[in-house]
Amino acid sequence: MSGTQLTVTLSGGGADDARTVVRVLEGAFGAPDELPGDEDATVRTATFGDATPEGGAADTGEGGGRLSAPVTVTVQGSPEAVRRASDTLARAFTARDDGAASGDQEQERQLLLEP
């Protein structure tokens, strides 16, 4: 789906944890508009401008890295983008699905990623 955005909101952990999560998603969605970086923030966001990976093949994100603390991740976008993001994160981290909400054309899912 060209032109579809995926928005990722992260809370818990530090800026390094947020960057670790976002880097895992880069394999499936390409580079975000900006990496989370504010050390003092309690909530960090990243937006992927196009939820379609370039070149067609997506990295699965396996072995994404280690987290120093639990991180709550909310992904929002098209149902397909949210499903791919959720699947990618579940393969890379120990993840607990904390629920989803659906709208007309967008979906939102919350995951708890554990170290």
Rank of each mutant, 00 (worst) to 15 (best):
G56F: 11
A69F: 06
V43S: 05
Q107R: 13
L89H: 02
T94Y: 11
A81R: 03
D17A: 08
G12C: 10
A57V: 14
F48L: 05
L112Q: 07
G3P: 03
V21L: 10
T72N: 07
L35W: 12
T47C: 08
D33Q: 15
R84W: 07
V8T: 00
R23S: 14
T74N: 02
A46W: 03
A18S: 14
G14T: 11
E80G: 03
D38G: 00
R19T: 07
Q5I: 08
T7K: 01
D59R: 12
T88P: 03
A41Y: 09
V8Y: 02
A51M: 04
L113G: 05
R44T: 03
A101K: 06
F29A: 11
L6P: 05
A85H: 07
A46P: 02
E108V: 14
R66I: 07
G13I: 10
V22G: 03
Q5N: 06
T42F: 13
L35D: 12
R66T: 10
P53Y: 01
G13W: 09
A92Q: 04
T7S: 13
D104P: 06
V73W: 02
G3Y: 03
A81W: 00
A92R: 02
E114N: 01
P115I: 03
T7A: 14
T42E: 15
S2A: 14
L111W: 01
R96Y: 04
S68M: 06
R23Y: 10
E114W: 02
D16M: 06
T74V: 15
R84S: 12
